[in-house]
Design a binder for these strands. Structure first.
Length: 155
DNA sequence: GCCAACGTTGGC
DNA sequence: GCCAACGTTGGC
């Protein structure tokens, strides 16, 4: 009974939550994803999956760390909290709309793999790499084993 | 079911 | 702060 490990890239605005924050808290529920495609990816995650921690909307966007999935998907509690900015009045505990996983710290990259460097390897990464595909804005996206290896070789 | 208006993402 | 590209909403 072996399962193939899957890989993902997850974006966060470092002013909001950075790899240093994750290093401090060790594990963090990935709240606030309100995009159906990203949600579907999170629902398919399994404990042990690898995560590239990407800083977006910052001076030098890029991959700054490695994390891992440390829980199965479960309903995002913020959707039920009227005080939360992620509150969704159309969601109920009986039929939750939004799911998340807990993400655990693995390591901080010695040198970030910048978006610029990633773009420079666009050809090897392939057309299907959603991070640099034109027009895609996904905050959670799949990474193949080959892409994972290539991206981390740029550290 | 169409589509205009609006909100969000995220690089620059 | 700008703006392109998307996704969602709601009137019809």
């Amino acid at each position: 009974m072996s399962k193939r490990k899957h890989y993902w890239l997850m974006k966060s605005e470092p002013e909001d939550f950075s790899i240093d924050d994750l290093a401090r808290v060790r594990t963090e529920p990935w709240t606030g994803v309100r995009n159906y495609q990203a949600r579907n990816f999170m629902r398919s995650m399994e404990v042990g999956d690898g995560v590239l921690f990407y800083h977006s909307s910052t001076e030098i966007p890029g991959i700054y760390g490695v994390a891992e999935v440390v829980s199965a998907a479960y309903p995002d509690p913020t959707q039920f909290n009227p005080k939360s900015k992620y509150f969704d009045e159309k969601s109920t505990p009986e039929q939750p709309r939004w799911f998340l996983v807990d993400v655990g710290y693995v390591r901080t990259l010695k040198h970030p793999v910048t978006l610029e460097a990633i773009r420079a390897h666009a050809e090897e990464l392939g057309e299907d790499f959603a991070l640099i595909r034109r027009g895609t804005r996904l905050s959670v996206l799949p990474v193949s084993a080959v892409q994972w290896k290539l991206l981390l070789s740029l550290e």
